[in-house]
Design a protein around this nucleic acid. Structure first.
Lengths: 230, 230
DNA sequence: CCTTGTGGGATTGTTGAACAATACTTCAGC
DNA sequence: GCTGAAGTATTGTTCAACAATCCCACAAGG
């Protein structure tokens, strides 16, 4: 009887606003809604067949997730990530993932298993040359790292960071070349973790994140400088 | 001309929903709205002289800040912190504040100065025996620590954590006895930071947070076990 | 040519009322 | 004491309206 408490959240039905937010979130993540696009309340409400008020509730959710920007009396727009945003978010990622590593000794075995499973998942996907699955596994790995910290709040924050960064990954031309090399580095970190050499794992992670950030921000500057003054 | 960019946020007028959220946030922080209180849309909207729709927008904000809980078709209520919540939030605090310390060498002087200023502020308030100001300075100190990480996202997360924990501080009987001893420990951490001994500062911080968390959760269990089965 | 008003049209901010869907309460019947 | 059914209160969502604000184009003036 007691075990049912944990399943309570499965019952929670969703409101229309939540589902609308889901729809918009998906479109933003997939790039269907390009960064910078302004979202008119009236037209979107009509298209989705909901009222303006409900749509505004959905907007509030996405604004707080930093997926949309909002200016008073000017409505919302799909967020455009700046180089500064990416740098900022990567600092936060390092804080959370390092916290996970540092708590690894005290972490539940279930959480440690998830870390190694994510690495294996990525390697299997790479073997099948499914690069989109490799990318997913990569994110799963890092989220699993943060989850080692054993804090729902950290996990939730990490989820938001990765969702926010998703458009940044999108600017990288080929997921194969971007995620491929990091697969091996994930393996290295996971092995150091298994061996109990946490300081080395943290150094490796720090270097990993620095490199990934540099690669993304370099690419963003390229795109900006090429596409900007046209 | 360029310097004006930074002042842009000062122009941002606030919507009614934002102001309503502020009002509710203040009442929750001060304990005027006790944890567990259910907030009826109709009555509160009438009292505040706003429409239900606007109030619902304000609710959404506070729900995402974890100050209110929400259940479909049952409305919102002031969040009741559990022991588990406090433990979880303190793990997150450690992650953020430790990240700040570890970035201290690279932090802007302005941010380092803010850390030391917060300690001094607390000591001055203690000398005047203004214990509520001591408590504020204590929170400022820890927020300043997290800010050393140099990430707006970390700062924002820290702000939310402290706002969420505020009712927990409230269960401590006297702010003098609770915050007083921590004042000295803040000084120790700040001195270690100034001396450049970051590992020692981090150890001291970890111990600090562990103790504070234990003190609060013990007190919460006391209150619960005394007031629960009555 | 550039800047500065000045309109009108479009969009957002907020309200009030309405109705459907869901939860809570009460009470009868066993 | 429990079960079920009816009624009531509350929330979920929509709609239409109006005020406030922004955006754009265009005229007036230097």
């Amino acid at each position: 009887m007691e075990g049912l408490t944990a399943d309570r959240h499965l019952l929670a039905r969703t409101s229309t606003a939540d589902r609308v937010a889901d729809v918009l979130r998906t479109h933003i993540a997939e790039g269907t809604l390009a960064p910078g696009t302004r979202l008119s309340e009236a037209s979107i409400a009509t298209i989705l067949g909901i009222s303006r008020n409900t749509l505004r509730e959905a907007f509030r959710l996405l604004i707080q997730e930093r997926l949309l920007t909002y200016e008073m009396n000017r409505g919302v727009a799909v967020r455009e990530l700046t180089v500064r945003d990416v740098t900022d978010a990567y600092k936060a990622r390092l804080a959370l993932e390092a916290a996970g590593l540092r708590n690894a000794a005290a972490a539940e075995p279930r959480l440690l298993a998830a870390v190694h499973e994510a690495v294996a998942q990525g390697e299997r996907a790479a073997a099948r040359e499914e690069w989109s699955a490799v990318a997913t596994a990569d994110l799963n790995f890092h989220r699993a790292l943060a989850r080692l910290a054993g804090s729902d709040r950290i996990d939730e924050f990490m989820r938001r960071l990765l969702a926010e960064l998703r458009p940044a990954f999108h600017v990288m031309p080929s997921p194969r070349e971007f995620h491929g090399p990091y697969l091996r580095r994930n393996r290295v970190i996971a092995d150091l973790l298994a061996a109990g050499d946490l300081p080395a794992a943290e150094r490796e992670l720090t270097d990993y994140l620095d490199n990934a950030e540099a690669q993304i921000t370099d690419r963003m500057r390229e795109v900006r400088d090429a596409g900007g003054p046209r």
